[in-house]
Design a protein around this nucleic acid. Structure first.
Ligand SMILES: [Mn+2]
Ligand SMILES: [Mn+2]
Ligand SMILES: [Mn+2]
Ligand SMILES: [Mn+2]
Lengths: 229, 229
DNA sequence: TTAAATTATTAGGTTTGCCTAAATTTTAAT
DNA sequence: ATTAAAATTTAGGCAAACCTAATAATTTAA
């Protein structure tokens, strides 16, 4: 029996594996061609074609018309790319002074560099970190991904307090908006009031009172010590 | 007038530009298709094809059957790739503990990453270095390449002393051989004797006497204070 | 100065990863 | 249950960057 565990993949194949990995987490069902098409900025026909190639290589299980799921090996490969992406993002932030809205684009390129020694050295240099600049967990060398139970700030109730541990939307515009309000990973907060009509929050954050929109709160992951209700 | 100075190139185009740059330095004549073919591990027919594409983009001057030379713009682009290659090599050596025989392969990949901010940050992190781990000069941001007059150790005469400033052969095997003899960039030497028959050197190096073959000496660049003869 | 050898170019294919347009299947709406 | 809409797949092409084999130009050697 041979699992072809350590072949090399093209950049495009790697991008597909990563995209499937991310979309898979949205549910149990197969990842739809159209979703991949949108994520990868490619036409559906191109996606179908590549999916078939990945299926031939036993990286995905594919049922025509019903989408695709990663195999165990496919997941392992995807996690390796995610690991590289997040380590590079953190390296750029910690060692080269990149802001958290600047790291993603470059990491999209760096994640495809093929050198185990390189990424292990970066890992070591960073002190075997657990999270990237956006709070996302970094898989370890063996593909173990810590699964912290994070909830959305928008789900919190008045009286709840906690810490920002991640962002859902990682677009530059959102990240820059957070910068402007001095909200970052690790920032502590307490919810004072929540408007029933539109979910607008009165929130203590950075020793200031802030009105936070529902949309913003729905893009911030938090860890809470829930208030006893 | 438009020089198309800042377009993006494919990895393959970049590799051709770099190869032409290196081969150009061997003389004034056009770089031959066959030399590029060997350097790039591609068949001559493929080289001709790519050369035509580069000529269309005004990156090279091409005369059928007489080889190719970089245009001013082509040279600028090539220097930028060389700059990235050498900065990455030094980064790998200085910050990630790579040995000088390990850096080249990874730098071949990293040199194609497209981010001016990234390479400028690496440059800054390294303190705007002048030379890579093999002693080769690093072009600055504007494409200025310091032209030190280096000579070969094999050309030295008895009584000459100086410093190793670079290697001609950068193969792993040669670099590892140098390691074994504790010869590195910066190592000082004095020539004691040179055998007329085969050019074998008796040389003081690392406070030891060493017999050095002509072949080895012919792959070491040195800076000398020539002995008054 | 010619003929042979070498080098380079052209012609015609292949593979990868895209695309559009047409056909098929699934899903949603009467 | 039918039909319309939406999603997916198939068919047929294209460009990049390779390749081999055939042809042409240049160089070298007789
Ligand atoms: Mn990212
Ligand atoms: Mn991230
Ligand atoms: Mn190198
Ligand atoms: Mn070098």
């Amino acid at each position: 029996m041979c699992f072809y565990t350590d072949l090399m993949f093209t950049q495009s194949e790697e991008n597909y594996l990563k995209a499937i990995f991310h979309l898979e987490q949205e549910g149990e069902a197969g990842v739809a061609t159209s979703n991949l098409s949108e994520q990868l900025q490619a036409k559906a026909a191109s996606v179908t074609e590549m999916i078939k190639k990945l299926a031939d290589k036993n990286l995905v299980d594919y049922q025509k018309y019903y989408g695709v799921r990663l195999t165990e090996n496919g997941r392992k490969q995807a996690l390796n790319i995610v690991r590289k992406h997040r380590l590079w993002e953190l390296f750029l932030a910690e060692h080269l002074g990149f802001k958290w809205d600047e790291v993603h684009e470059v990491a999209e390129q760096l994640e495809h560099i093929k050198s185990e020694k390189l990424i292990d050295s970066i890992d070591k240099l960073l002190g075997y970190p657990k999270n990237d600049p956006h709070g996302d967990p970094i898989p370890d060398k063996n593909g173990n991904l810590e699964k912290k139970n994070k909830s959305l700030l928008s789900k919190c109730k008045p009286g709840d307090s906690g810490v920002i541990i991640g962002v859902k939307d990682t677009s530059s515009s959102f990240l820059q908006y957070l910068d402007k309000q001095h909200i970052a990973i690790g920032t502590k907060f307490t919810i004072q009031h929540k408007e029933p009509f539109d979910g607008l929050l009165d929130i203590d954050i950075n020793t200031k009172q802030l009105k936070m929109s529902h949309k913003m709160a729905a893009n911030l992951y938090v860890e809470t010590n829930e208030s006893s209700s």
